[in-house]
Amino acid sequence: MNNWIDLLIILLILSNFVMLGSSRLAVCIRTLAIQGILLGILPLMIDRQDLVLHTTLVSIGALIIKGIVFPWLLFKVLRRIGIRREIEPFVGYVPSLFIGLAGLIVSLYIGSKLDFPAPESVADVIPLSLFSILAGLFLLTTRKKALSMVMGYLVLENGIYAFGSVVLNKVPVIVELGVLLDALVAVFIMGIATYHINREFDHIDVNRLDNLKG
């Protein structure tokens, strides 16, 4: 089983790199979909004796919401708005990849330092989740398009979710589902907000949204 988990983790890390390095929004959304599906599977892979039902429920929920609903929503927004690319982020794509690499190393370092009460088998999930969080935050702070920010938020959310999956047996299922539902609504509303931005401003460059300051 461990190998499977490692594979998942590697795939997830790679997907983050794709998010960091891709300018095409459609590609990003697809990557997110893949990430969502992978994350959905992740809890199932973690070796647990008990709570099968619990884990399964949450996994299925995550799979559906993260892997299918989110991408669908995002695509819908993308089509409405009719743009394709993130243009000139604050940090270019190649530097982004390097920074991502640095982030990965930092995550691994912190993950190894953390004295975390998790089974040996899933210890690697923690660096992954940290990396996802960092990547998400990086996307949020450097991308200009509203949609890219939403995706950054999702990556961040995924990271936290991955972290949550490690302590999953500690969190009641209703909470988990509530959290998922909230994320869903959040993305839904962010999508609408993106649409509103587009309607009011004829663009979704959030860095040009700076009327309110001081």
Binding site: I133, L137, Y153, I160, G164, A186, H196, L209, N211, L212
Partner: peptide
């Protein structure tokens, strides 16, 4: 325009914040 901008900022910033809060909740659980 300004209302949309405010809403967007509110949404994103608070969502990020709340995401951290969730992380915190998980850590407390842990």
């Amino acid at each position: 325009k300004t209302a949309v901008e405010a809403m967007w900022k509110y949404l994103i910033i608070c969502s990020v914040g709340i995401a951290f809060a969730f992380m915190g909740t998980l850590l407390v659980a842990a």
